[in-house]
């Protein structure tokens, strides 16, 4: 069961072997370790699901940064989750022009289908519904992004077909 109030990750917080290699690759791209922070936070979030206090402390330790600096950066950027999220983060663009091309109708449709509001997660932890700012697909509005993929020119049928694939 999904616990939206979890305070940290269960189990040991250690990078996987692949991520250890990726960490080394990322660090050597920059003259100092701090510059790798944002790419490393992406990597950590992908592995652990969200940036819990324990994950942020681990990243701080690996990059030799104060924990406060990591928290400051993680708080600034919208893609970083400091609370648990569902397996599939569905982000619907409601900027201009998507808002005048049916973006809010997409949000309402998904909200009704799944029984959750914006910012909420289904009880089984499958889907979190969010609004997003401009996703650079304005000519193909309305659109959403989930699992790094864009789904454009949305219709109710296309949305339903997509939701069925989000296990």
């Amino acid at each position: 069961m999904f616990n939206p109030n979890a305070t940290d990750i269960d189990g040991p917080i250690l990078f996987s072997p692949e991520n250890e290699k990726q960490l080394a690759t990322l660090i050597q791209r920059y003259p100092y370790k701090r510059a790798a922070l944002i790419p490393v936070l992406h990597m950590a979030q992908a592995q652990f699901g969200w940036l819990s206090p324990g994950v942020m402390a681990y990243v701080a330790q690996r990059l030799e940064l104060p924990e406060g600096k990591v928290l400051q950066v993680a708080s600034f950027y919208t893609m970083f989750d400091k609370k648990p999220v569902g397996r599939h983060k569905v982000e619907v663009c409601t900027s201009v022009p998507c808002c005048m091309m049916g973006g809010f109708a997409v949000v309402r449709h998904i909200s009704e289908r799944l029984g959750i509001g914006v910012g909420e997660t289904t009880a089984d932890g499958r889907v979190t519904l969010l609004e997003a700012e401009c996703l650079a697909g304005c000519g193909y509005a309305p659109l959403l992004q989930v699992n790094g993929e864009f789904h454009e020119n949305l219709t109710p049928e296309r949305i339903d077909a997509l939701l069925a694939t989000l296990r």
Partner: peptide, 10 residues
């Protein structure tokens, strides 16, 4: 690329 209305650099 984040300016609303912009979708070319992508």
């Amino acid at each position: 690329e984040g300016e609303p209305g912009t979708f070319k650099d992508r």
